[in-house]
């Protein structure tokens, strides 16, 4: 468990990092290192160059921008979890983060690293999907917006060009008074979930005005259950309604492995989706109004 040889680069600016990324062959970016360092040491990853982003200025921080929170790609998971802004406006993310590894790993792990590592069970990927995050992707020709829904290309493969890097995540704020909940099942606390569910409900006049329901761990990327979301809209929240919505999970395509066969993941998904919806509904308050950070 000693890494194979690589050249280490220590840029101080995004421009410098992008330049290295564009000019070096077989380079990898190092963010919090909670996945990449073990992969290097286990010789699963063999980059010739490692570009360490930890001293790059301006990549970390959480700011309010209009109707969204902007979270720098190098913001530590623990800082997000503790952020008053996140706790107030994105309770779903704060809740999900308590399941991400352990406090020690969250002290180093970053949101950008988690999104780009794109583990099928990663909590932050599911949450970003549930909240319709938009990513700032910077390359030699400038910054482009990338919807989180377009991030996964395949198993642990983000749709970033080799010379591009993720610099920030922008998350549109759900309206104040929305209800959100994150549920997951893992064999041990802190492990990647076998399956997770993230629900966001906006209530108006006692009925569901908007619903977002996302599953993690069932496929290569998070799965938004759009049909179920549409079926929830306009209905009054009830156990029966959520049970029916969650039943949609019974027919999803799910990954299979000996510990967690597809049928089990589907059942977990249904259970967790129902629980997440019920918890989200219990946390939502009506009437809702458009969120504001003023």
């Amino acid at each position: 468990m000693k890494a194979a040889p690589f050249a280490y680069h220590d840029p101080r600016s995004v421009e410098e990092a992008l330049h290295l990324l564009a000019t070096l062959e077989n380079a990898r970016l190092l963010a919090g290192g909670q996945s990449l360092m073990p992969m290097l040491n286990m010789r699963v990853a063999f980059p010739d160059h490692l570009i360490d982003l930890n001293r790059v200025e301006g990549l970390a921080g959480i700011t309010a921008e209009g109707g969204a929170l902007r979270i720098g790609a190098m913001t530590r998971q623990r800082d997000i979890e503790e952020s008053p802004l996140v706790r107030a406006h994105l309770p779903l993310m704060a809740e999900a983060l308590t399941h991400v590894g352990h406090r020690q790993t969250r002290n180093r792990g970053t949101i950008g690293g988690s999104l780009c590592n794109l583990d099928p069970s990663a909590e932050l990927v599911a949450v970003a999907t549930a909240l319709d995050a938009v990513l700032d992707v910077q390359g030699p020709s400038g910054v482009r917006d990338l919807s989180i829904h377009d991030l996964p290309l395949g198993f642990m493969t983000p749709s970033l060009a080799p010379e591009e890097m993720l610099t920030a995540i922008r998350i549109p704020l759900p309206p104040a008074g929305h209800g959100a909940a994150f549920e997951e099942f893992a064999r041990r606390h802190g492990d990647y979930a076998i399956t997770s569910a993230a629900a966001v409900l906006v209530l108006e006049g006692g009925r569901i005005a908007r619903a977002s329901l996302t599953l993690g761990g069932v496929g290569a990327g998070p799965l938004r259950l759009r049909t179920a979301e549409a079926a929830l809209a306009g209905q009054a929240p009830s156990e029966a309604l959520f049970r029916e919505a969650a039943a949609a999970c019974g027919s999803i395509e799910a990954m299979s492995d000996p510990q967690a066969p597809a049928w089990y993941r589907r059942r977990l998904a249904a259970t967790l989706a129902r629980r997440a919806l019920a918890a989200a509904a219990s946390r939502a308050t009506t009437p809702a109004r458009q969120g504001s950070l003023a």
């Binding site: 286990m42 041990r188 606390h189 802190g190 492990d191 000996p258 510990q259």
Partner: peptide, 27 residues
């Protein structure tokens, strides 16, 4: 939790502490 698993060709499947699950204080 703990089990050393093998695939049908005898390849071990529990070769990291993410696959071989030792109880932690939370369990």
């Amino acid at each position: 939790l703990e089990e050393f698993r093998y695939d049908p060709s005898g390849q071990p499947l529990s070769t990291t502490l993410a696959d071989y699950l030792i109880p932690t204080i939370a369990e």
